[in-house]
Nucleic acid binder design. Structure first.
Lengths: 238, 238
DNA sequence: TTAAACTCCGTATGCCTTACGGAAAATTGT
DNA sequence: ACAATTTTCCGTAAGGCATACGGAGTTTAA
């Protein structure tokens, strides 16, 4: 907590021992770099230390442990891109909020793997929430509805981003494109699936495959879903 | 793959060595039990073996490795609750699809932690997709739109379930309720946050807290968001 | 000048996956 | 009936992980 709000709190005071070779911010930045590269399961304290030219155990003099470091990393990336001032109607504002979150998930996919058993409330997290609420302020919603609409947009964005990031990761990791993978698996599936057992899946899957030139088109799905969602909000406002 | 479709493919043939002490299905069920109890990060082959009265390395004669076992577990829980036949209009059908998925995520929260670098197409997964598409069949959507609408509902459901499961996990794990936790942190935050810096967050947060008697009400958020989403689909249909 | 506090890090413990190889068991082929 | 083959079960070991503890050296405060 003190670490999260270190900017407003200032550095404690008396530092009696040797100078620290790096700073807490550098540890956080190194952590973000490791998580960006390897994902959260493969994120380890040793890799952070290596990146900073320190030995493993020295990291523990900067942060109490792995979960706390991850909490600091989350707040750090939340403040990475400043929130652009709102303009236009609530619809374009909410779109900006969703797109901001969508981009962030794609910049740092490990955000979707964070399972904080405790939500760390940092300064950038507070700013974020205030900015998100401002998008729907004055649109004619009650306070509760404002919270619900923002929550809904964030839930959808997180779910869609999860699909998108997973799809990207699959393609990159295996080096096999959607089409190649499908061509390889189709013969097996044809043997194994009772013919005619999946009429809709077959028809729609084929149509989607031809339209997207892939198994899915995550960005298009996101835009489509967001439009429907906002249409739903418009219904609510009348 | 052969393991996934083992029901339709049947058991290979000659089994020359000693009898297997358990079955693949028992391994999968044990795996599900471990994941339900501990979550996916703490899910280990050793715990599965212990639960079956086997030693660690014996598990590898049933399944090739950890990722494959998880793939089998996913398809197994996908077939756990049979898909109820559709009736009523598309709106009630889609609600059933979303609710089915929502319940599944709450029965097996580790589903939201699965990062399959490769999507395993199993029999129950196929049935599921067919059933989901059937919910919007005949409503007047194009094939592409059918896929997009289903994808959108699933994305929102996954995102909302993730929030819900995380909130539940936080409360259960720490043993501290939302209100207790907030009461404990409020004094620190008041010291640390510039007063008046977060007018909307303060107002809306307070209103939400009083309404929900908690920081959030995930089930209510899910229902609210789903209604807006379906309103949006209705707009699309006209 | 001396005591306190702090940084850095070596070591140890106890988890985890999985590669490899050996012993025993069951079936197949003669 | 007997041997060859295949398969199961598992012991061991290698290489990864977080982190508790304590020691050595450094810097500041009294």
């Amino acid at each position: 907590m003190t670490l999260l709000w270190r900017r407003t709190l200032g550095t404690p005071q008396g530092a009696r021992g040797p100078k620290q070779r790096v700073s807490v911010d550098e540890v956080i930045q190194a952590g973000i770099a490791v998580a960006d590269a390897d994902g959260l399961p493969a994120f380890s304290m040793r890799k952070v230390a290596d990146r900073l030219g320190l030995k493993l155990m020295s990291i523990y003099t900067y942060v109490p442990g792995r979960p706390e470091l991850i909490g600091l990393m989350v707040d750090e990336v939340t403040g990475e891109i400043p929130h652009p001032p709102h303009h236009g109607d609530w619809r374009s504002r909410l779109t900006a909020v969703a797109r901001h979150q969508w981009d962030e998930y794609h910049r740092h996919p490990w955000l979707l793997q964070v399972e904080s058993s405790r939500p760390w409330i940092g300064p950038n997290g507070c700013d974020r929430y205030e900015w998100q609420l401002a998008a729907v302020d004055g649109a004619g919603l009650t306070d509760i509805q404002m919270d619900q609409v923002v929550t809904m947009v964030l839930a959808f964005t997180a779910g869609a981003a999860r699909m998108s990031v997973l799809a990207r990761h699959t393609t990159e990791e295996s080096g096999i494109s959607d089409v190649q993978w499908w061509d390889a698996n189709a013969p097996i599936l044809e043997k194994v699936m009772p013919p005619g057992a999946y009429p809709l899946a077959g028809r729609v899957g084929t149509a989607a495959g031809e339209e997207y030139n892939a198994v899915s088109d995550p960005d298009r799905s996101f835009r489509f879903g967001l439009e429907r969602l906002l249409d739903g909000v418009e219904v609510l406002l009348r």
